[in-house]
C-alpha cells in the first residue's frame, strides 16, 4: 500500500504491533520522475507479507530511519542511501557499505553516468 513519508514510521509501527515483526527487504526504484522506496514486512506466524511504498521527489529524497522498529533495517538503509542517494534521517552517518571508490553519484539511479569504456560496450 502507498503511504506518505511522514506516515511511514507510524505505518511500520502499526504493522509491527499486528505481528509483522520481520523486515524482509527495503529497496528503491527510480522511475526518473519519482523515486519509490519499498518496505516489505512479514508476519512469520501466518506467513503473510505487506508492502509499504513511499513516493519521493528525486531532488529532495529522504526517508526517516526504520531502525527504531526493525534492527534489520540497518544495512538495507545504508545500501539504499549509497545506491540511490536517498538520505536516511534520524541515524548517524556511516561509512560506505558496498562501494570502495571515490566517485560521485548514485549508481542505481537511471541518470548515473557510465564510464566511457562501458558506454561503448552497452
Amino acid at each position: 500500500m502507498k503511504t506518505e513519508r511522514n506516515e511511514l514510521l507510524n505505518g511500520l509501527e502499526g504493522l509491527y504491533s499486528k505481528g509483522y515483526t520481520y523486515l524482509v527487504k527495503i529497496y528503491a526504484v527510480d522511475y526518473v520522475k519519482t523515486l519509490e522506496a519499498v518496505y516489505v514486512v512479514r508476519n512469520m506466524e501466518e506467513a503473510k507479507e505487506e508492502r509499504l511504498e513511499v513516493e519521493l521527489d528525486p531532488s529532495d529524497a529522504w526517508v526517516p530511519s526504520a531502525m527504531r522498529v526493525y534492527k534489520a533495517a540497518d544495512w538495507y538503509e545504508r545500501e539504499m542511501q549509497e545506491m540511490f542517494a536517498i538520505t536516511i534521517k534520524g541515524r548517524q552517518a556511516e561509512r560506505l557499505l558496498l562501494e570502495k571508490w571515490n566517485g560521485s553519484g548514485a549508481p542505481l539511479r537511471k541518470n548515473f553516468a557510465w564510464s566511457e569504456p562501458y558506454e561503448k560496450m552497452k
Partner: peptide, 16 residues
C-alpha cells in the same frame, strides 16, 4: 564487518 570488496553492481548490470 566491512563488506563490498567483491561488489560488482550486478543489479545495475542486468538492467542493460
Amino acid at each position: 564487518p566491512h563488506i563490498g570488496f567483491l561488489h560488482r553492481g550486478v543489479e545495475k548490470l542486468v538492467e542493460n
